[in-house]
Write a protein that binds this DNA or RNA. Structure first.
Lengths: 226, 226
DNA sequence: CGGACGCTTGAGATCCCTCAAATGTCGTGG
DNA sequence: CCACGACATTTGAGGGATCTCAAGCGTCCG
């Protein structure tokens, strides 16, 4: 009788989108034995900066932010992760960032040491992780440009353009104003003022304080992002 | 008669420090056949942002900066690379950054496609590249914190602390004031003023305008870096 | 000697932050 | 159904850090 994948893998919503998509059914077996599903509630912390780094995980549903902070408590979000994304730092004893759930988040968690052993055995998994890491690095470099050189207006426009946009231009903001501020290296007040400016200049259409907006003038938004 | 490594590999100054250090003599053979040494003069560009991405390379001696730029020409240095570091973006058709030599730089260059084939065959090489990429990502995240949340003073202090320091506290700056400014998301004037302030408050000792300085009070510099 | 270059210094402007208060929304409980 | 508080967001006023523009200084090199 052949061993088979657990039901959670067969049913997995992100089987193809996540790292696992690089593996066939047989190859996935080892990894599947390590994984366990866990829902972490909004606001809870998955890994703490400077602490042990015991896990890696795939995000099934939900969202996480990766935070770095200064000694006096200012925070900078250094990455946003969504459904299908991978979180974790293989080969590192200590976590370099704090990972916090932005919403109730369903994770498929692997012990880091076990995950590393599967990397040893499954070159396709390692390749997929390498490609994802390279992509994360490119994105982190782009954010350095944004944080180092762009105005508040341009940062917000850049952020809005990075979000999935419906065909009618609708955007559902995945995060609150304060979290946008933490991501863009600004204060919440500045973010709010920039929203107001974009609204009153007709670039976007939105309710005051709302999480849903519509991009009216994409070209103007793209210009603003410079 | 056995094939053997080319003389440039046998003599290589960074054989152990660079990516190649992950490979034994036999395993290095394939890669060594691809590599060729090239000295690129200070100021010349190795890859252009948005252009073809034909090469990967190890830095033997010298230094490179990785630049991203806005449409209107403002520049942000998103990485500094030195002897032993790897440069290149495997699996990418288009380069995301401009790589420019900060000094006359001796590279060991591989065609990207050939390098990718060796990655397919040499798991140790791929592992070493993965670990380096993860390290670069951590560093890029730390720079996001610096760029998003730290004052000019703290940025410069952080930069100085990141440089190799002799036992008497001596630092030889590898780059000019303008390049420091590009790296720290500041202007050259602000960088210069911060140097002056650090000097007049006795934290560092340096000649006006000089490339060599001495850290007098490490603790004060560490405090300033917050 | 003269010019180019890199760095520093100064003055003023600007953008964003800080502090403070008002507004709006939502859920809870009376 | 309404009062209330908690919370997120907006708005306002003022200040400060950094940028911009301009000039000066020192060194190196032809």
């Amino acid at each position: 009788m052949e061993e088979s994948l657990p039901q959670r893998c067969l049913d997995c919503l992100v089987r193809d989108k996540a790292l696992c998509g690089s593996l066939g059914d047989k190859q996935l077996l080892d990894l599947s034995l390590l994984g366990r599903r866990k829902v972490v509630p909004k606001g809870s912390v998955v890994t703490w900066e400077g602490d042990d780094n015991p896990i890696c995980a795939n995000i099934v549903t939900g969202a996480l932010k990766l935070q770095a902070s200064t000694a006096d408590g200012r925070e900078q979000t250094v990455g946003l992760l969504f459904s299908g994304d991978f979180i974790g730092e293989p080969f590192e004893e200590e976590s370099a960032v704090t990972a916090e759930a932005l919403a109730d988040t369903d994770l498929c968690i692997f012990p880091r040491s076990g995950f590393e052993r599967v990397l040893d055995d499954q070159p396709q998994l390692e390749r997929a992780l390498l490609e994802r890491t390279l992509k994360s690095l490119r994105e982190a470099r782009e954010r350095q440009l944004v944080l180092g050189r762009k105005s508040a207006r341009a940062r917000l426009a850049w952020f809005l353009l990075s979000l999935p946009r419906g065909c009618d231009g609708t955007i559902d903001l995945p995060i609150a104003r304060q979290e946008i501020a933490d991501y863009l290296g600004l204060t919440i007040e500045t973010v709010s003022r920039q929203f107001t400016d974009l609204r009153s200049s007709g670039v976007i259409d939105a309710e005051r304080g709302g999480r849903r907006l519509r991009v009216v003038d994409v070209t103007a938004l793209q210009d603003a992002a410079e």
